[in-house]
Amino acid sequence: METSSESLKFELTPYSVKPKRELPRAGLKGEVGHFGAVTVERSPLYRPGDKGMDTARLSGPAFPETVFRGKRRSGRPSLFKAELTLDGKKAELRFNSRAVRKEDRALHIAHEGREYVYSVEGLGKPRVLERAGVKIAMESGQFVPGADGAPSVGTATGPVDVVDLAVALVLEQVDTDALTLGGAIASSPFALMQRFSDRAE
């Protein structure tokens, strides 16, 4: 598997399409250094048949197909009832939405012998995915008037490969507010409602 040993900088730009006979799509796309083109996509439209679940999907010629599903929140999948699969193989996800300390609120992801920690400091701060020797930090770039949102600017350090990048990039289209203290406090009523609706299903 190809890796990048030096620091890699890249930018994904937001886009949205509204085809006539298909669901509208929105997300990010761009080139990630020598790894090439990548697209992270979700449908901003609420679909009643999905039982309140939403999906973000990453694809690119060099990347494993990566799918993140979670309860819909703010027009995106969230970390509640979440599932992450890479090339059809499920990753293990765990996080504590009620934790007060930043380290305890981080999202832990285990996949094929790799252990990742994903943390979000708060609004305007980097979103960071780390495993031993590898770090990918994503930040929101400068908002361009008339664009579909702000670009996502990434810096990857260490022997980064397509799996690391796929995990970090698919999370750019996921509502990860619950990992911030403010978000954890704001989403606690949401978590409580989820618990009641889960019981009702």
Results as ranks from 00 to 15, higher is better:
residue 121 E to Y: 06
residue 45 L to T: 02
residue 138 M to C: 12
residue 143 F to A: 14
residue 104 D to S: 15
residue 129 L to A: 08
residue 63 F to I: 08
residue 153 V to F: 03
residue 44 P to C: 07
residue 76 R to H: 12
residue 29 K to E: 15
residue 177 D to L: 09
residue 201 E to K: 15
residue 70 G to W: 01
residue 145 P to D: 05
residue 193 M to Y: 11
residue 50 D to W: 06
residue 180 T to D: 06
residue 195 R to W: 12
residue 185 I to A: 11
residue 74 S to C: 07
residue 195 R to L: 12
residue 48 P to I: 07
residue 128 V to F: 01
residue 78 S to A: 08
residue 143 F to S: 12
residue 162 V to L: 00
residue 61 P to L: 02
residue 3 T to I: 11
residue 23 L to P: 02
residue 113 G to A: 13
residue 35 F to I: 10
residue 23 L to N: 10
residue 200 A to P: 01
residue 88 G to Y: 13
residue 85 T to V: 04
residue 15 Y to T: 00
residue 21 R to M: 08
residue 89 K to L: 10
residue 98 R to G: 10
residue 115 E to K: 13
residue 163 V to M: 03
residue 91 A to Y: 03
residue 149 G to Y: 06
residue 9 K to S: 14
residue 168 A to C: 05
residue 103 E to H: 09
residue 53 M to L: 15
residue 36 G to Q: 09
residue 110 A to E: 14
residue 34 H to M: 09
residue 175 D to K: 04
residue 98 R to H: 11
residue 5 S to L: 10
residue 29 K to I: 01
residue 1 M to S: 13
residue 170 V to D: 07
residue 65 E to A: 13
residue 53 M to G: 07
residue 74 S to M: 11
residue 93 L to V: 10
residue 171 L to E: 04
residue 19 P to A: 10
residue 68 F to G: 08
residue 97 S to T: 04
residue 139 E to D: 05
residue 152 S to A: 14
residue 61 P to W: 02
residue 125 K to P: 01
residue 114 R to C: 02
residue 11 E to M: 14
residue 38 V to L: 10
residue 130 E to F: 04
residue 201 E to Y: 05
residue 5 S to F: 10
residue 197 S to P: 00
residue 150 A to T: 00
residue 98 R to N: 09
residue 142 Q to D: 13
residue 32 V to F: 05
residue 5 S to T: 14
residue 38 V to K: 01
residue 155 T to P: 02
residue 62 A to G: 07
residue 107 L to D: 08
residue 61 P to Y: 03
residue 86 L to M: 06
residue 17 V to H: 12
residue 150 A to K: 00
residue 153 V to M: 04
residue 49 G to M: 11
residue 176 T to V: 15
residue 133 G to M: 01
residue 85 T to R: 04
residue 174 V to F: 13
residue 141 G to Q: 11
residue 197 S to Y: 06
residue 76 R to C: 03
residue 102 K to P: 07
residue 31 E to R: 07
residue 91 A to F: 01
residue 70 G to A: 07
residue 148 D to P: 04
residue 80 F to K: 12
residue 34 H to K: 15
residue 92 E to Q: 13
residue 185 I to H: 05
residue 9 K to F: 08
residue 193 M to I: 13
residue 37 A to S: 14
residue 70 G to Q: 00
residue 50 D to Y: 06
residue 132 A to K: 15
residue 100 V to A: 11
residue 156 A to D: 01
residue 105 R to Q: 08
residue 12 L to G: 00
residue 122 G to I: 11
residue 182 G to M: 07
residue 27 G to D: 02
residue 134 V to Q: 03
residue 168 A to P: 04
residue 45 L to M: 05
residue 188 S to A: 14
residue 22 E to P: 01
residue 84 L to G: 04
residue 21 R to I: 02
residue 57 R to N: 10
residue 196 F to P: 03
residue 69 R to S: 09
residue 120 V to Y: 05
residue 145 P to K: 06
residue 159 P to I: 10
residue 137 A to W: 03
residue 193 M to W: 12
residue 117 V to R: 15
residue 173 Q to T: 02
residue 36 G to A: 09
residue 106 A to K: 01
residue 74 S to P: 00
residue 156 A to Q: 01
